[in-house]
Amino acid sequence: MDACLIDVSLREELPAAARGDRLAYGRIIALCQNAVTGIALAITRDVHASEDIAQEAFLKGWRQLPTLKNPDSFLPWLREITRNLARDHLRARRRQPMTGEAADLAILLAADTAPTPAERLLHTEQEAAALDVIAALPEDSREVLLLYYREGQRTPQVAQLLGLTDATVRKRLSRARQYVREELMARFGEFARGTAPSAAFASAVLGMLAVAAPPAAGAAVISGSGAVAGKGLLKLFGLSAGFAAAGTLLGIGAVWFGIRTQLRDPLDGRERRALLAYGVFNTTLILAFIAGIGWLSGVPGWLPHALLTAAYVAGICWASSRWLPRILARRRQRDLLQDPEGTRERMRRQCRWQTWGLRAGVALASLGLLAGLVMSGRLSL
């Protein structure tokens, strides 16, 4: 996107987003996600942590968006939120000693002198080169350099997203090139582009907004999504089909977004096959639920619909809370050995989001079922 269009797009989308329009905020996320993840990565030097922090920054921005009076203040405000969260993350890592399960695991693995597959797959050459570049540069140059490659090497966009002049961006790029050898810079560019958040990142954040929606905007979010997505499917099964259809693409995108990092760099073929099976299972489950809702539209009574919804919710909960942790167990063992504090912090954050996500999913599925049963006349309150 042209740099001058970034401001125009933000001014167009922010008023609607402040009123609770999730789709408008999703377009804002797509505009800013490279900048926010890049700022977090420049500070933390950790791709996984940078994406977690970026999600938290966008969610915090969503909750506080109605308080923002001037649209032109949005980008500086969001950048400051991101930097504060990233620095809090670093401080939390420094304060946390390795205790409990992490310490026990480290002792256990240290006692085993045979190299494991996880130990042989530490960092790729590209990642190691990128970490060398990041370590060699001051923080402001890291931000500029990461965003320069993620934004297609266009300095006007970088300047706009970071609140700088084009001349300042060019000066910092020139300074970065003085610090870093040419061959390292090329590998860093590949790393920056390869770790940039995909379109699924915005979908995943949008999926969390049902939990984090501002009180004033919550009604608009729910009614808006139901009205838009439900038009073509209300005939099938009332409002529940509308809720289901609205969440189909979002749910599938969130499934694959949740495992995109591990799929990009699997420990081995075994983990990759298991992750693909997990993604296909959840995608199939979501599509089967939508098809089942449509098929049951001609079945009288409320029990079949309740049983289908219960089976769907149980399947999603089992896959997320039981199957996926087993798939990732070996990876977590490796990460705990290499970076116990950071890994424990990521695991806690992921556990919190998983818990809230499952609660929100169960609540929305139950509300959609109840609304559909009432509107179709199958159930009287």
Rank of each mutant, 00 (worst) to 15 (best):
M347C: 10
L336Q: 01
L337E: 03
L328A: 03
R322D: 15
A329T: 02
S320Y: 13
W323M: 07
R346N: 06
L328E: 04
E345C: 13
R349N: 08
T343P: 03
L328I: 00
T343M: 03
R322H: 13
R349I: 06
R322F: 12
R348C: 11
T343A: 08
R330F: 09
P340A: 09
T343G: 04
P340T: 05
Q338C: 06
S321G: 14
A329C: 08
R331N: 04
G342Y: 00
I327C: 08
R326M: 11
D339R: 01
M347T: 01
D335H: 09
D335T: 05
D335Q: 14
P340N: 06
S321V: 10
L337V: 06
Q333N: 09
R326P: 04
R349M: 08
R349D: 10
P325H: 04
L337Y: 08
Q338E: 15
G342A: 10
I327Y: 05
D335L: 11
P340Q: 05
R348E: 09
P325M: 03
L337N: 02
I327M: 04
R348S: 10
D339C: 08
R344A: 12
E345D: 12
S320N: 14
R349V: 07
T343I: 04
R332S: 10
S321F: 14
R330E: 12
R334A: 12
L337R: 00
Q333V: 02
L328D: 01
A329L: 13
R344V: 06
Q333F: 06
D335R: 00
D339T: 02
S320E: 14
R344M: 12
R346K: 12
R348D: 06
Q338G: 14
R322E: 15
R326T: 07
Q338M: 07
R348M: 10
M347F: 04
M347Y: 03
R322V: 14
R334G: 10
R330A: 15
R348N: 12
R344P: 04
M347N: 09
I327D: 03
R349A: 14
L336F: 02
R332F: 07
